[in-house]
Computed example of a mutant assay.
Amino acid sequence: MAASPIVTITDMSISFTSPDEADIEAVRQVDLTLTPGKTLALVGESGCGKSVTARAVLRLLDRNADIRTGKILFDGAGGAVDIARLKPDSEAMRAIRGAQISMIFQEPMSSLSPVHTIGDQIDEIIILHERLNPKQARQRTIEVLDQVGVPGAKDRANAYPFELSGGLRQRAMIAMALACTPRLLIADEPTTALDVTTQAQILDLLRQLQDDYGMAMLFITHDLGVVAEIADEIAVMYLGDVVEQGDVHDVFRQPRHPYTQALMNSVPRLSRKADRVRLSPIKGNVPSPRDRPQGCAFTSRCPYAFEPCAGIAPARTVLGPDHIARCHLLEQVQTKELA
C-alpha cells in the first residue's frame, strides 16, 4: 500500500507585483506530490522558478510575491492544512516551519548567522519546537552534528560559521534542518558550491538520513548527474512551467519534451571525448518572465516548434504511468495514434 503524500501541490501559480510594472508570473499551474521516503528532483535552468516553488511551501516568499491560485496541502497531525492560505507569520505556519518541513539553503555562509555559534543557532530551533531546556537542547545539538558527520561535534558546536570549511558549514546546515526530525526536507542546490568529493559525501549523507527518518525530500538542482544519483522522480521546469514529470528512470531513458531532450544532450559525456563530438548547447536564451510567450514558453528555442506552439499553451499529455509532459507535438502524436 502506497504511503499518503506529506505535501500535495495542486495548480499553484505565483506572481510578483511591482508598483510601476504589470504583475510578473513566476510559477504557473504547478502540480507536485511529495511522498515519505521518496525524493523528487526539481530541475531546470537558473530563473525557471525552482526556488520560488520551494520557498512557497514554507511561505518564505518575498513580500511582493503572492500565491494567486492553487493549494499546498500539508498532511498534518490534525488533518490536511492548506499552507497557501496560512499567513507567513502565523502561529500555525511557525509550528510547521522548521519542525515538520525544513530547508537546506544553497549558500550556508549567507544563511547562517555570522555572529552566533553553530550550536547556538541549532539550540534555538530545538528549544522553540521541542520545548527542551538549554542543557537538553545542547545535548541534542551535539548528537545531530555527530549524526551528520561533523568531527569533534562538541567542540564544533562552539565554532562560528567562518571557522568551518565549506563542507562542514553545509553539514551544519543539514544538522539545523534535521534537528527536529522533519517529515519533509527541501534541499535547494545544497552541493553547488562544493568540490566533487564533498558533494558525493553530502549526497550519501542525505540518502542515509532519508532512510533513517523516512522523510520526503524535494531536491532542487540544475545538475542532472546529481539527479541520477539521488532522485526517485523528476520534474523539469522551464519559465515557471513543469514541462515534463515522471519516474527518473523513465524520463532519463526516454525524455519526451524537447526541453528535457535538450538538457540531456547538453550534458558532457566521457564517450564524446574519443568521438570528438561537440556539446549541444540549447540555442537562444530563456525569455524574461516580463515577456512571457502567449503559448508554449519554449517555442523560441524549440527545433520542433510549429504553428500552435506560439499561440496556445499546451495541455498535459499522459505518456505512461506517472509520466506527463506539456507539448503540442506530443498531443499531435497521441491524437494520430488514437485515430
Rank of each mutant, 00 (worst) to 15 (best):
S113E: 07
L184Y: 03
E189F: 13
H129P: 15
V115R: 09
R131Q: 15
E91P: 02
V144R: 02
T117C: 12
G70C: 07
D123C: 15
Q106L: 04
S111W: 09
E107I: 08
Q170W: 03
P151A: 09
L132T: 14
A54S: 09
D120V: 11
R85I: 01
S90Y: 12
I186H: 00
L58R: 05
V144L: 10
I104L: 11
G70S: 05
L184Q: 08
V57A: 05
E143R: 13
A175P: 05
Q121K: 10
E163C: 02
I126H: 07
L112T: 07
L128W: 06
L164W: 01
P182T: 04
Q147T: 14
Q139R: 11
D188G: 02
K50I: 11
D82P: 01
R156W: 05
K87W: 01
A95S: 14
A172Y: 01
L194G: 13
M103S: 08
G167T: 06
R59S: 03
I122H: 08
Y160R: 00
F162P: 00
L60T: 06
S110D: 11
E130G: 08
A137P: 13
I122L: 13
D89Q: 14
I96V: 15
R59G: 03
T117H: 12
L132D: 03
L132M: 15
R97L: 02
I104Y: 04
D66T: 13
M109P: 09
N133L: 14
A187K: 01
D66Q: 11
D75V: 00
L132I: 09
Q136F: 13
I96P: 04
Q136I: 12
S111G: 13
M103D: 02
R138S: 02
D155F: 00
A177P: 01
M173V: 11
L132H: 09
G78N: 15
G149I: 01
